[in-house]
Design a protein around this nucleic acid. Sequence first.
DNA 1: CCATGTGAAGGTATTCACAGCC
DNA 2: GGCTGTGAATACCTTCACATGG
Lengths: 207, 207
Amino acid sequence: MRYHKIPDETVRRLPIYLRGLMLSATRGREHISSQSLADFVGVNSWQIRKDFSYFGDFGTPGVGYNIEGLAKQIKKILRLDVVRKAALVGVGDLGSALLAYPGFRTYGLDIVAAFDVDAEKIGSAVSGVEIENITRIATLQERGISLGIVAVPHTAGQFIADKLVEAGVRGILNFAPCKIDAPRRVKIITLDIAMELARLPYYMPAG
Amino acid sequence: MRYHKIPDETVRRLPIYLRGLMLSATRGREHISSQSLADFVGVNSWQIRKDFSYFGDFGTPGVGYNIEGLAKQIKKILRLDVVRKAALVGVGDLGSALLAYPGFRTYGLDIVAAFDVDAEKIGSAVSGVEIENITRIATLQERGISLGIVAVPHTAGQFIADKLVEAGVRGILNFAPCKIDAPRRVKIITLDIAMELARLPYYMPAG
DNA sequence: CCATGTGAAGGTATTCACAGCC
DNA sequence: GGCTGTGAATACCTTCACATGG
């Protein structure tokens, strides 16, 4: 079933599969069954097959999936096959951790610029990235940066997001604990760490 | 419809509502309509009413919801009405940022212990929390700590999780990019930052 | 014989529309 | 009149069972 809208939930799981495949690739085997991948990433095998079925025939019946080929396919679908430049705004504790985080590179995402309001930080470098005045966010477009990461206090979230949108970014990963409004053409993903932790006690047995 | 299983998706949204209500509380008004709250947090008004309907009659027709009362109710449902002690494992860049993050306190979550393997870090303090040797994770139970936060490399994720489970924690917030297996009685929430960023390009128009 | 790919069934969550209440 | 609470309708996602293909 090749021509079909891909469910959002499937898109959410693709990076999980990709991570599992990239790890498997270092294990020496060339093929992997949906069942093995399932055990490895913690998703049911039929769910995996269904997810893959939205894109086309990835696997070989009786054999499984070609690990390298499948990983490449998923990268292409997620558009991770080109290196994409990202800008970070807000170089506080979290921002600094994000700059130091090597995980983004794995997915072709490269933080090449960082901005802050703090005059003391501006000019210095964190993890090899120079911190610039936020007024320079306006230069993003000409520098080919299409992705913004917001790690500022919630009071500044919307303001910074507006600046990023003006500067032409088409996607924002928002760590600020607030709602962000933006034109439909800009995709926003909000990731509020405290809120994830906040729903943990609900699932914990008494105590 | 008071006696009903609460959908997971509703539980996921409750902290969003809570955050909005706590912010609204500082605005001086006593009541808020589902519509106003909807505008504020970015969820549809009917979704909000439906979510609340799983718990009981929170609102007053023609008036709206009592902000303070509703916030208290949600806190109770999420079991955030008691202060809960948490332990952090892995005081790297991300771990340090989490220790410095004030957002957890808002939800009654208090990071009172931190562990690392690095001998140089052990004994020093980060954000007022002393860093201990990970062998001391075993003392969590007697210290009344029921919640673990894992911020270690993916190679150590499962190992640390096992230690935490042994030490009696009943919930784990996992930042390590790996699957964590644990007994059913322990709730695991995994939050892989790179993976969230990885699905952003998919939704970005060409470029 | 083994593992994929997929219609069909089943379950869950969202959206709608409106009755009921203040 | 305004706003809540909720059955019903719809859309979406998951699970199953098996036909199909190497």
